[in-house]
Amino acid sequence: MQPSRSTRIALLIYGIVTIVVLYLPLISVGFASISQARYLSFPIKRYSTKWYAEALQSDTVRDLLTTSLKVAVIVTVISVAAAFFGALAFARYHWKFRTLFQKLILLPIFFPQTVLGLALLMWFNAVGVIPTWKTAVVAHLVWIAPIATLIVAIRAYSFDPALEEAARDMGAGTLTILREITLPLLMPGLVSAGLFAFLLSWGNFPLSLFTTGADSTLPEWLYAKMVSGYSPLVPTLGVMSVVGSFLVIMVAFTVTWLVRAMRESRTAMD
């Protein structure tokens, strides 16, 4: 059924309003970052990129970015590895404690992150581990690895078990099956899980706040500066953080696309 003209106009307006409400705050942060004034006021009198120049030269900013990146990259790698095997256990293989495993893995997601962060901090103290960015990696993993596992599990559910059996029937061993069949088929799931893991870690505030100790990630610093001692570097770093996320997504897409193109050209060759 075609919606009527008035319905279509109403839907269009609704769409535009939604987009504006969602993205206007983000855009205003963008504007704030290129204003020369120390405090944000509209209309912006003089545009300047001096805060970016300052940010790029600042040791603090470099440390923040390094810490955030370190945590996010390590969390991503470990999450994806755990998610691959976890998802196979979750969705593919029938074993004794499977239902229990499927329920337990959801638990960390149900915990409010602040509670989870606090609990982990207390636990680190109890076992005598001094919180640094490394403990933050552990904290992020507790929350992010299950999410990554669920993302890969969705993919693993749509996987015909006969594919692995057929490969075995034709003479493939366990490792060959993993390399030739299981891994390529789960790859789209692994890529999305990796992206999610990186972005969730990169932007995470509540878990980092409790568990980084003396180290500081980008979201933590943004919060601290908003609470006390606003600096024009705040919107600047905010924008840089968004651009960082965006770059990661772009890189992931490009790599996926390149891999596919390479596979196709290899097919054409041999």
Partner: peptide, 24 residues
Amino acid sequence: PANQRPTCMVFQSLALFPHMTVGQ
């Protein structure tokens, strides 16, 4: 084991590998 038997089966679902071409 199945991967060392000189026999082969055509599956009910056919079990064609969706990430490969016909030739592969």
